[in-house]
Design a protein around this nucleic acid. Structure first.
Lengths: 234, 234
DNA sequence: CAGTGGTCTAGACCACAGC
DNA sequence: CTGTGGTCTAGACCACTGA
């Protein structure tokens, strides 16, 4: 029942019949309309409000929300590379380029946070689609947070999925930017030096403990990120 | 009351006391614990489930969710440039470079969708921070959707905010990629040709009517996008 | 089978908005 | 003041899970 009420209202908003700012019928009207109790109507409207499709003001009424994606946020798909490659019909592969166990650099605050009292595992690898490189990954793993990582080989399995299956993490941060490929990166990615790359950096924490930090450089011609924003869409 | 229950559970999840997969007490236990009715407990748990912090399985119980940001999505802040520049303490400016009213290119499906039965307003402009260019914007506006645009001058106000104040839109799509600046763009952005730029493309619709489409090229050294992901965070 | 969540009811009290 | 949403209650029936 509450899903039916919600669906009806969503449809009216989506079609433009109720533009942003339009008043939604009050709860008592919907009670009468659908022949149900107020709690049921309230649930439908509250969920719509949570989803950002309507704004409810006590004493005033409920109104279709005015979207504001600029200051707020959009849902951005950060794909798992292996999954994304497979879904495009290519064969996924991972090739380990370098693997080092080392102490953190004392001047680097990020490395110090990550290492804690222990050491760092530094990995570099290539994500391949049908054998062609599409992304270069530089990763640091906190050995203190993931002791098994020190003994794992990552020759063909990407460390990202390996890690996230073993470490229950609670928080992640992403940063997206653009950079030109330096000589080393260009050689590994098999592009001209200076080619524009999309850079995705991600830090992952479990509680206050930093777990891993990764920088993925994507061939600019091979990858992009897509986000949709439709207020209140289920 | 339901907020207090929700908060208590969230705190236990965030602290790691209840790791992913851990069983949350059933509703009847929380009723007794907090001395409230089942509806209240249910509301707290349902909201947590909506937020993705717990997973509820009828007949089985409620469990702390295992985060999965890769296939799902993260909240990405797509900033309003003027707002973002101001918040960094710089002076914002906009300079119109070109303005043309023209018919859509017949081979270009995007332009045809945008124009509908009418014409297109094509704008190019620079976003400035303390007078320095930080982003180059190429925009198409559907005159059919925004008749006033045909007579508006955009010499100093950016068309984005102008448009979104006048047109109640219902859907937006974003695409993020990286590209090298061509000669024209490099000259306008005052960078070396070939410099990596972050490219943000956005389409905006009202119902089925396309309203505007914009491509913003950011100086790679001047801008990036940040996203956080923390399951169930309020 | 007993335990669990999904949903709904008919009523209640309150805080707040706007007249 | 009336109308509005925010919240809570005590009970109910159902569908599903897992032993």
């Amino acid at each position: 029942m509450h899903q039916r009420i919600r669906g009806d209202i969503e449809a009216r908003i989506r079609s433009g019949e109720w533009p942003p700012g339009h008043r939604v019928p009050p709860e008592h009207a919907l009670m009468a309309r659908y022949g149900c109790s107020r709690m049921t109507v309230n649930k439908a409207l509250s969920l719509l409000a949570d989803a950002g499709a309507v704004v409810r003001r006590r004493g005033a009424g409920s109104f279709v929300a005015t979207p504001h994606p600029h200051i707020e946020s959009v849902a951005l798909a950060i794909p798992d590379i292996a999954h994304e490659v497979a879904s495009r019909g290519w064969r996924y592969g991972f090739r380990l380029v370098a693997r080092r166990l080392r102490a953190p650099r004392r001047r680097d605050a990020q490395e110090l946070e990550l290492a804690g009292a222990g050491r760092l595992l530094a990995l570099q690898g290539l994500h391949l689609a049908d054998g062609r490189p599409i992304a270069l990954e530089d990763r640091l793993v906190a050995v203190a947070a993931v002791p098994e990582a020190a003994t794992a080989t990552f020759d063909s399995e990407p460390p990202g999925s390996w890690l996230l299956q073993r470490v229950p993490w609670t928080r992640a941060e992403h940063r997206i930017s653009a950079a030109s490929a330096d000589a080393d990166a260009a050689a590994l990615l098999e592009v001209e030096p200076g080619t524009a790359c999309l850079v995705l950096e991600r830090g992952t924490w479990r509680g206050e403990q930093a777990v891993t930090r990764v920088r993925q450089r994507f061939r600019g011609d091979a990858w992009d990120l897509v986000a949709r924003f439709e207020p209140g869409l289920r």
